[in-house]
């Protein structure tokens, strides 16, 4: 896109100070996903209906409690985007047939974890993109099946220890490139965000809200429980994910991929790794230079391609 729309969110001081998302949710203390969600919700506003899939955030609303000032529907692990399809279509029909006024319309927002987004729900997501469904998808990516105790998922990074990759080398697979998979569908918008970069996040949500069609957001969500670190480190780890180049902040619009924040002096990846218990085996009892440099090389290769 040649013309970047003007943003209300020039810096932190321009960020909303309202807090739409209610307190009292059962999410873990220091949840990076909840952090990203409340930032997103403040931008989106309450005229939204969240369509949720099985994951940590299923428990956001446990009878009779809900943190949402807007609406919510729990579906199932594989089909939240299909639920969004049903609601979007029904609202369109009701407005077209003049059974409700335009003022009653809602933004339809899918909210799933990485387990659903990267795996079981991918087919349903692909379907909505091929049908050009007008909706927003938010994946809170904590890199594992968090709600069941952090087993590895298709979003788990190489070498991470999870409850199903407890061995000395951790997870043998590699994190799936969901951004590329989504972008290959040529939807209206794809972006990566993280709660620790609220201005970047706000601008992207703001931009997405001005568009029609499928708008897809992946929020890396540092997870004190699953990644094994002190909850107070959530924002610091998030910032390091960006500074070390582990989590590139980028967006896809009109066939182009734009990096919204390029870490010019990238910090070594181990600065990010060593804060997390899930990578402890890379440093103790002795340093696993092979694995650490393997991870560093992957990041370097990625950014060399971007910077060149």
């Amino acid at each position: 896109m040649s013309e970047v729309p003007m943003t209300r969110y020039k810096s932190l001081k321009h960020m909303p100070s309202t807090r739409l998302l209610g307190t009292g949710t059962p999410m873990c203390a220091g949840c990076g996903g909840l952090g990203a969600l409340h930032e997103i919700y403040d931008i989106l506003g309450e005229k939204t209906v969240f369509v949720n899939a099985a994951g940590c955030m299923t428990l956001m609303s446990v009878y009779p409690f809900t943190p949402f000032r807007g609406s919510w529907l729990y579906t199932a692990m594989a089909s939240a985007p299909a639920g969004a399809q049903g609601i979007r279509d029904a609202l369109d029909i009701l407005i077209e047939k003049k059974r409700i006024s335009k003022a009653e319309d809602l933004q339809v927002v899918v909210l799933t974890g990485d387990g659903s987004a990267y795996g079981m729900g991918l087919s349903a997501t692909s379907g909505t993109m091929e049908r050009d469904l007008d909706y927003l998808y938010i994946c809170y990516d904590n890199e594992g099946y968090g709600n069941t105790g952090q087993q590895f998922s298709a979003a788990t990074p190489h070498a991470a220890k999870t409850s199903t990759s407890m061995g000395p080398r951790g997870f043998s697979g590699f994190k799936k490139d969901l951004f590329a998979i989504w972008a290959a569908h040529k939807p209206a918008y794809v972006a990566t965000v993280i709660g620790s970069e609220p201005v970047d996040l706000a601008r992207k949500i703001e931009k997405a809200m001005q568009m029609k069609g499928p708008r897809m957001i992946i929020a890396l969500s540092p997870c004190p429980t699953g990644w094994d670190y002190d909850p107070k480190e959530t924002v610091e780890i998030g910032k390091l994910a960006v500074k070390t180049g582990v989590w590139p902040l980028k967006e896809y619009i009109n066939g182009e991929i734009i990096h919204t924040k390029i870490p010019r002096q990238r910090q070594p990846v181990e600065e990010y790794l060593k804060l997390q218990g899930r990578f402890k085996h890379l440093f103790e009892p002795q340093r696993n230079e092979t694995l650490i440099s393997k991870l560093q090389n992957k990041i370097d290769t990625y950014w060399e391609n971007i910077e060149s």
Partner: peptide, 22 residues
């Protein structure tokens, strides 16, 4: 009419639309 990508999604969309009021 919307052709979904599976019956699982089809029933989800059906239920979601009914729960929206059509």
């Amino acid at each position: 009419m919307v052709t979904m990508e599976s019956e699982h999604s089809m029933i989800t969309a059906a239920g979601a639309a009914a729960a929206t009021g059509v």
